[in-house]
Design a protein around this nucleic acid. Structure first.
Lengths: 262, 262
DNA sequence: GATATGCCTTGATCTGGATCAAGAGCATGG
DNA sequence: CCATGCTCTTGATCCAGATCAAGGCATATC
């Protein structure tokens, strides 16, 4: 079912900016989010907005499902919408002509991505798992932001947080060892899980080793070796390839921060 | 003369948020910028704003000089102000406990940095050359943004552009070779110079090799070797260590994008 | 103009992580 | 139950870039 709507999004003409087939009361999913469209609660972009603002957002948003491996948009596509994830995981990446790939970020429940005022997307976004997103047309969001400072303010806050994350990731890529990168990555996932109200420790990795490698600037083999070694050392438990239990968070954190741990 | 005001900034109490000793008509420098404080013209943050908005900004801004090697603020300091560069160059970096350093960005005339809503700076900012900055108290800027959508909109635009730059830099650090990194870095400086109305080719590098290395995730030696090789191959001219003339921009661009050039 | 002080460059060697190459699970499907 | 096709792990080598080690070559100081 998702397939067709995905295709519709991709082939969308500029008019797509404002149309949103699913954004009619009749098709709206039940939920307890501020606008009634999702169950994000306090994680929702519109949480705490004035009723009038929420109803304005409600009118322009649409909730869209994607399947794993679906492409939400591609680098260079006109940036017509912003996405907020209700469920599932998304990766965004840039490709080099020869196929080298850099995953610049992973996004999970509550995260927003796709901001690009009046330009094109700087990266491709692809669903890792089945995903539900709340899609907000950029132009409408912008119009609204001009009359509701709370909207603009929240956008700035989200972007500020993202910028800080990028500074950290640049440090990781520029100066950390393989071991430090993997430790930092896992702790980052754990922190983000906690911040959205999920347990920080038994983690389920929605992405494969290749995705992790392409995110932290390593190869699959090196990621695998680092994780195996953490397991051997008792810092992690790896009941299965996609399950990670952090046994010694402090030791792991020390490694992530650059302590000369073995 | 800058020394003392720098110190004053660093030791500033929370009250510093709103005080700005130099922001009085009496000490304002002559200039042709929108608010009369700088000569940034169209590069100015406040260019094109409504007169009322400009005068509001004018009241809270202050123009501050720094000398080379001065620290504007440190990672972890409360984020009380945003900076716009009028002249000179600034580097921002993060340090690891053992001294490893990652320069996450360089800023030049017209660039803005220091956004961090209600938090702490995520990085340290240090002048590379003598610098003149326009300093805007974050709180005041925020208040103004809530009443003047044009201000908020411009902040979002600046941040969007910065995010796109980060995606590129993450690709560079995660997946490019030493040669590709140096080529990309030099072309990036060239593009930015052109975008602020300066010639894109004979470039003056305000930063040393060590800074370049810490920005693109290499060592001084590797940066030096890459540049020497570009010179030997006729892609660059290096009349002195800090002067770079781009002889074959297209060839350099091909290398930067990952063409298997030699 | 001799001496110091910082880069910057260049050369020789070393090494962490890439690459190459098998296996080892572990689903899916017949 | 066994193929088929994954992805993940593990082992053996290789190599781009780091590290170690001298020199150049400016500008600054006295």
């Amino acid at each position: 079912m998702a397939r067709s709507s995905v295709t519709a999004l991709h082939t969308g003409t500029p008019a797509d900016t404002d149309t949103c087939p699913a954004a009619r009361p009749g098709v709206r999913a039940p939920g307890r989010g501020p606008c009634g469209h999702c169950d994000l609660g306090p994680l929702a972009f519109c949480d705490g907005f004035a009723p009038r603002t929420v109803s304005n957002l409600w009118r322009v948003q649409c909730t869209v499902p994607f399947e794993a491996h679906d492409t939400l948009f591609r680098e260079g596509d006109p940036g017509v919408a912003v996405y907020s994830i209700v469920s599932g995981a998304v990766k965004v990446y840039k490709l080099m002509p020869d196929g080298r790939r850099q995953i610049t970020a992973f996004f999970f429940r509550g995260d927003m991505f796709g901001f690009c005022l009046g330009g094109s997307y700087a990266y491709t976004a692809e669903a890792i798992t089945p995903v539900g997103v709340c899609r907000l047309p950029m132009q409408r969001l912008n119009d609204l932001a001009n009359t509701a400072p709370e909207v603009q303010d929240r956008i700035v806050r989200r972007m500020t947080a993202k910028l800080a994350q990028f500074h950290d990731h640049v440090l990781l890529l520029g100066r950390k060892t393989a071991r430090e990168r993997v430790a930092t990555f896992l702790l980052g996932l754990s922190d983000r899980a906690r911040r959205r109200g999920e347990p920080g420790s038994p983690l389920t990795l929605p992405m494969g080793r290749a995705d992790i490698a392409d995110h932290i600037g390593l190869t699959v083999e090196t990621v695998s070796r680092a994780m195996t070694r953490f397991k051997r050392e008792g810092l992690l438990d790896l009941p299965s390839a996609s399950q990670v239990s952090i046994r010694q968070p402090d030791a792991l954190r020390a490694i992530a921060e650059g302590a000369t741990g073995g």
